[in-house]
Design a protein around this nucleic acid. Structure first.
Lengths: 221, 221
DNA sequence: TATTCTAGTTGATTTGAATCAAAACATAAC
DNA sequence: GTTATGTTTTGATTCAAATCAACTAGAATA
């Protein structure tokens, strides 16, 4: 989170986020319905958030990696509205929300930064809405891969080679597709030599053509 | 916005939101790409927000009515990411965002309330993602109508009789459907005597069965 | 009043994705 | 190392929604 804060500010923030927590692969960071008290900053690992209905329908609302902030949805009612599940062993910093609000009163830049983070989540969600509302299967998968690629790049990993942490079913849930459709879309992109798929490992051979597949340049964040 | 604020707090807030603005039906409150400076609280009227792609694809990201807050998506980059268009003559209060942040430092309850509003928007978007990702046409329309109905009720209007301000095409864009599919879904619900459709006027005859149509009880906010 | 124009409905057809089903792989457990 | 379990791929078929097209009803304009 610390972007644009000075030394003193970071020090104060450090006292708030002291508490760390590890979650094993498959474990829950929080469950829908549980009481909200803290936001969680991901220090390492990979998580998914998903909402589920009584009729069993599940929707993955996001995949989250290092540096991202979880729990924003729960501020509104102080009840978590989604499950957060670790897709690999992960570590998070707990940020008691009441304390965050308190110290953000004395550190305007922290408050402003927090507002930007919340806003960015809204923008991201709108991007997903566009994807779900108006893109075809292959376009959705292309968007998804480009988005992951960019996020790995930002974190210092290769944008061309990476491992997926989630199953085809989870990708499908996020993209509003069935797992078979996701699998077929992968195969299609591979047949066209745009990507190389080896189980969970993805290699992007032709970034340009992958971007063209998306049909539009706006990239979900 | 004022919920849970005392007299003094409301007075301070009042000084910030003094500036009012009217937008005629069809007019823009703001456009995608324009500089962000203020949030807008809707005093009266009805607006849509939509993002559009260079390839012409458009996605309506929301319909907004009295009491709701617009512009949250723009905080992140200080550029509006969507168009906001009035679907009927509307009036909004301009809330300079820098000032809002400033006074929210001295009024913790105001800050907290603002955070809740942003969070609620995220929850709403997740609901729409669920709808777009996993519901059939008829379920989507049922959700949409129930959501409108509830919002009219909250504002003191009939939950059973109301006029749609948007076209079938705009509904379709919001729900990820083509206008013909929206029209057919309306006709189907009418044939089953669940609603009565007369052009833009909607009458809900059987709220219970409409809820059942949705397939799940969670309602997009 | 006639005349566009836009919005909405309905029907016929096509198409993309879901579903059903089987086989091939991987991963974890024993 | 073998078995069991979960994941992925691929094929055949079905189905829901998109598309294409014709027509109707209102609203706006001349």
């Amino acid at each position: 989170m610390p972007v644009g804060l000075n030394e003193h500010e970071i020090h104060v923030l450090g006292e708030v986020v002291s508490h760390k927590r590890k979650i094993q692969r498959g474990g829950y960071l929080h469950r829908a319905g549980s009481k909200f008290q803290s936001l969680y900053a991901i220090r390492s690992g990979f998580l998914k958030t998903c909402i589920l209905e009584q009729d069993g329908r599940q929707q993955v609302t996001g995949f989250h990696m290092t540096g991202e902030l979880l729990g924003l949805d729960a501020i509104s009612t102080e009840i978590h509205t989604c499950d957060a599940v670790a897709l690999e062993d992960s570590e998070v910093c707990e940020i008691p929300f009441a304390k965050l609000e308190e110290i953000s009163r004395t550190i305007p830049s922290l408050m402003h930064h927090f507002h930007k983070i919340m806003s960015r989540e809204i923008v991201r969600d709108h991007g997903v809405m566009l994807l779900l509302g108006s893109m075809k299967a292959e376009e959705r998968l292309a968007s998804f891969l480009l988005n992951l690629s960019r996020r790995f790049l930002i974190r210092g990993y290769s944008e061309y080679n990476f491992n997926l942490r989630m199953t085809r079913e989870e990708i499908g849930s996020y993209l509003g597709l069935k797992l078979e459709t996701v699998s077929r879309a992968f195969s299609k992109l591979q047949d066209e030599n745009i990507i190389r798929v080896d189980n969970k490992h993805i290699q992007i051979n032709d970034m340009t053509r992958l971007r063209m597949k998306m049909g539009n340049s706006s990239c979900i964040t």
